[in-house]
């Protein structure tokens, strides 16, 4: 059994979303067509606008439809601190949590030599320009604690070191409210290696 061409085109199109298989796509398509045509129109319009107009911020590579994103434009941000993260989702995670008031740089990935992802794909030349302009005093390396994230952090710390800029790596360790017994060995050994003096 097959749908009419337009319906089946919609179902197929919805499957490009992560986590959406044939069944969910069909459910979404029917919901939009039967119950929520206004929602569907709004969705289509929002998608089209976003796809046409959203690009990358010229100074931090965050997703935005303007030339500079709202964080880079904000006058209250501390421009001496630069937090380097892998994805736009990481920016939102840091923004929503700890009171960080500096600026960001979004790599849109990490160094992955086996996949051929090198400095050119991560906008490292733009990052170097930011480091060269003299306002950054500290680079906070908030790439993920995977081997690729560590390699990326190491590479950027060398770039910063050559310019005499301090670089710091976010701590990895036991989650708040966690119990040592259930923490995996790798995390626990990082936590022990990164212990600090009680004050």
């Amino acid at each position: 059994m097959s749908y009419s061409p337009l319906v089946s085109r919609l179902v197929d199109a919805l499957r490009c979303l992560p986590g959406v298989g044939p069944k969910s796509a069909q459910r979404m398509a029917f919901h939009l067509l039967e119950r929520d045509r206004d929602g569907a129109r709004a969705l289509a319009d929002a998608l089209l606008q976003a796809v046409e107009r959203v690009g990358h911020c010229e100074s931090c590579r965050m997703l935005t439809e303007e030339t500079r994103c709202w964080i880079c434009k904000g006058s209250s941000r501390d421009s001496s601190m630069l937090c380097v993260v892998e994805t736009p989702a990481d920016v939102m995670a840091v923004e929503q949590s700890a009171g960080y008031s500096g600026l960001y740089f979004v790599l849109m990935g990490h160094l992955s030599p086996l996949d051929g992802v090198g400095p050119d794909q991560l906008g490292i030349d733009l990052l170097e320009q930011r480091l060269d302009d003299g306002s950054v005093k500290e680079v906070i390396l908030a790439t993920n604690p995977t081997v690729e994230g560590e390699a990326t952090a190491h590479y950027i710390s060398e770039l910063a070191g050559r310019r005499g800029i301090r670089s710091t790596r976010i701590a990895h360790g036991v989650p708040v409210g966690g119990e040592l017994e259930f923490v995996d060995g790798g995390t626990l050994s990082h936590a022990l290696a990164g212990r600090h003096t009680m004050e």
């Binding site: 030599p113 081997v147 190491h154 790798g186």
Partner: peptide
């Protein structure tokens, strides 16, 4: 085994 992790430049040798 206990984690004997590679750090810094040596990570790139490991990738190699």
């Amino acid at each position: 085994a206990a984690l004997m992790s590679l750090t810094g430049d040596r990570l790139f040798s490991g990738f190699y």
